[in-house]
């Protein structure tokens, strides 16, 4: 269980509050209009934005004061998921050892992750030689190798085509199942949520609502969501 306990984040005049819990081992999608605070919520959970109040708790452990890299979360950002100056292999390996000090087992895991996402044999390349889809796969391979208990996705595939995006989402799903990860994702597209989420939580007007099962969420949308979906 990932609990946001009386959370409040202040950014300039914008305020976000959350007092919710996300089920362990499930995929929860945060859905809501632009500027409602979805990305801010993720940034706060991942440790990039200081909390004004409240705590973030994972299985009785208080994460609030930990650095982002110590929270046991793997991140997929909207962009900038890879270091352009490092090779594909190094980019993935950083997930296992930030110092890039790899033992044989780690190396094997990196290769396995690359193979799993369909990038076998491309470890030596630089990202500039890859397509957008392949770059997304590098980031996914890293999440897979990291095998963190929590995966945080901030619209990582927004720039990909529909078919490619579907492919990536199912890859995310597979990775999450493989690593038994709790997934938090932000998406603009309700179809993304429908495809891989178990639960959905509405983010509107600076408030994160409690997640509900996706069937209930979409069958009986709250008013703010209805306005957003245009139904």
């Amino acid at each position: 269980m990932l609990r946001l306990d009386g959370l409040k984040v202040t950014q300039g005049t914008f305020e976000l509050v959350a007092d919710v819990a996300f089920e362990r081992g499930r995929c929860t999608a945060l859905i809501g209009p632009s500027g409602a605070g979805k990305s801010t919520a993720l940034a706060a959970i991942a440790g990039f934005v200081p909390l004004t109040r409240g705590r973030i708790i994972w299985c009785d452990e208080d994460l609030s004061d930990l650095a982002p890299g110590e929270r046991g979360m793997s991140m997929l950002f909207q962009d900038g998921n890879v270091f352009p100056h490092l090779t594909v292999f190094q980019n993935v390996a950083l997930g296992l050892s930030p110092q890039l000090r790899l033992d044989a087992d780690m190396k094997r895991r990196v290769h396995a992750a690359l193979e799993r996402v369909g990038l076998a044999g491309m470890g030596g390349r630089k990202p500039s030689a890859l397509s957008g889809g392949q770059i997304a796969r590098v980031a996914l391979a890293r999440s897979l190798a990291q095998a963190c208990p929590i995966m945080v996705l901030d619209e990582p595939f927004a720039a990909l085509g529909p078919a490619l995006k579907i492919e990536m989402l199912s890859l995310v799903q597979e990775v999450a199942v493989d690593t038994n990860a709790t997934v938090l994702m932000v998406s603009h597209d309700p179809d993304d949520a429908k495809r891989i989420a178990d639960n959905c939580a509405l983010v509107a007007d600076g408030v994160v609502s409690a997640p509900v099962p996706k069937s209930e969420f979409f069958d009986n949308p709250p008013p703010a969501l209805r306005a957003y979906l245009g139904t």
């Binding site: 440790g47 990039f48 890299g69 991140m75 950002f77 998921n81 270091f83 930030p98 110092q99 890039l100």
Partner: peptide, 18 residues
Amino acid sequence: FGRLADSLGMQGWARVRY
């Protein structure tokens, strides 16, 4: 790339070097 490095726990020398 700061956030990505943060999320990967790249601190100190690792951050400087890579």
